[in-house]
Structures are given as structure tokens and as C-alpha cells.
């Protein structure tokens, strides 16, 4: 085990162990950082760009989720620029598909919504792009509404890394990228899906939901998956 060292985050000394990411260190030290794509225990991808931080001596902004700690690092998680950029990023997410909370089953139980409150989004400056996306209700227990999907790929990762079923991936690219089940089949037709529902639990929006959830009544339990990951990581 390598010896730990201290780094400073927002002028506060924090202990860090080699190999840890800045996000992990922030979590341990209760320093809040906004994240959308990251989920504890799944491999980090650095896609949502909300956890970008400033590191002294580094010219570019780096995502805390994929940046490893290094001795003498001086990190700043809150600056006017970071706040401005984070706010714009969350607005871009809301502008991309349909995130009308008023008629979403995930209303009041939605990480995306909570994040937008957190970042003080009172309106979206960018025009809504309103693509028409599919709603796949073919599964006996769950629904996938692509209109609510933010492409965080948590479902892809939990399916391959934790459940090991690898039924999900991303197809296409850019604005046309979509989450797919196997050969872009109806979820209900999937021969590889174990219906374990982990993807539904970790989905941060109303994109993946149980099909019996009424508007605003949805309860998701991502902690259950987090706990499961922890148990699996622990050596017997």
C-alpha cells in the first residue's frame, strides 16, 4: 500500500491515497461536486463534464472523476468560471431532448432535476431541440423513454460491469447517439437481458423506469446498486 499524502482542495488540506481520483477524495472529505455520468463503483467516463475542476499549474480544466490525485495538487472546485460553465452544461442537457418535469414519472425523484436546482438553473437560454425519440415499452417490467435520456451511459456500464450481461451499448454518434439493447431490438425481445433492473435503479432521469410508475410517484433505489457493488468489491 502506497503512503498517503495531502492535497489541497479549495484551500483545505485533504488526505489522498495514490490511485484515487479527485472525485473519490472529494466524496470522502464531503466536498460537494456536481456529477451526472459518474456512479460510484462504475468505471468513470468523464462525459458530463460537470465535475470539471481547476488545478493550479494545469492549463486546462480536468474532470475530477477521471483525474488521479498527485502530491502537492492544489485544486479549486468552485470558481465563477466553473459555475458559469456548469450552468451552461446543465442547460445544454435540458435543451437536448424532452425534459419537461411536469409530466415525468421521475418528477421529484430525479437526479437531473436536482442537479439543475443545485446549479441554479431558472431557465434554459438555448433553444429546445425537441427531437422525437422512441419510447420502448416492450419489456414486461420496465420502460425506456429515450426522450428523457441524457446519454450518461450508467445503464451501459452497470449492465456490462456489474450484471455482466452486456446487453446495452451506444449506437450512432453525436446528436443522433442512442442507447440500444442488443441489435437495437425492442427491450422485451432481448435474449441477453436478465431483467435485473440495475439499469433502472442507476438511471439518473426518467429515461429508465418501472412500467407501473405514475407521474411523480417513482421511487428509485440507486443505493441498492451501490451497496451491491461494494459487497462485490469486498474480498471474501
Amino acid at each position: 500500500m502506497n503512503a498517503s499524502f495531502t492535497i489541497t482542495i479549495d484551500n483545505q488540506s485533504v488526505e489522498a491515497t495514490p490511485g484515487e481520483s479527485l472525485l473519490e477524495v472529494c466524496r470522502k472529505a464531503n466536498i460537494p461536486l456536481p456529477v451526472m455520468c459518474d456512479f460510484k463503483g462504475l468505471s468513470p467516463v468523464g462525459a458530463c463534464r460537470l465535475c470539471l475542476v481547476e488545478i493550479e499549474g494545469v492549463p486546462k480544466l480536468l474532470p475530477a472523476c477521471t483525474t488521479l490525485v498527485a502530491p502537492n495538487q492544489a485544486v479549486h472546485t468552485q470558481s465563477d468560471k466553473l459555475r458559469k460553465y456548469r450552468r451552461m452544461i446543465i442547460e445544454l442537457i435540458f435543451s437536448e431532448r424532452n425534459h419537461i418535469c411536469a409530466i415525468c414519472v421521475a418528477n421529484n425523484n430525479c437526479e437531473l432535476q436536482k442537479m439543475a436546482y443545485e446549479l441554479g438553473m431558472d431557465h434554459v437560454r438555448f433553444p429546445y431541440l425537441t427531437p422525437v425519440c422512441e419510447v420502448d415499452a416492450s419489456h414486461e417490467k420496465y420502460v425506456m423513454d429515450h426522450n428523457r435520456c441524457i446519454l450518461c451511459t450508467r445503464c451501459v456500464r452497470v449492465c456490462s460491469e456489474i450484471e455482466g450481461a452486456m446487453t446495452r451499448d451506444v449506437m450512432g454518434r453525436g446528436f443522433d447517439a442512442r442507447i440500444i439493447t442488443e441489435f437495437k431490438q425492442p427491450w422485451g425481445d432481448s435474449t441477453g437481458c436478465t431483467s435485473c433492473g440495475k439499469c433502472v435503479q442507476v438511471c439518473p432521469t426518467g429515461a429508465l423506469t418501472p412500467n407501473d410508475a405514475a407521474q411523480g410517484r417513482l421511487k428509485k433505489n440507486p443505493e441498492l446498486v451501490a451497496l451491491l457493488i461494494e459487497k462485490r468489491e469486498a474480498k471474501p
Partner: peptide
Amino acid sequence: GNCAVTANVPAYRNR
């Protein structure tokens, strides 16, 4: 309100 701020439910028509 949301309709004034985001166009909300009426904006479903934009599809």
C-alpha cells in the same frame, strides 16, 4: 410558471 419559462407541455406540439 413552466409554460412561460420553458414552453412546457404546450411545446409537445413542436414534435
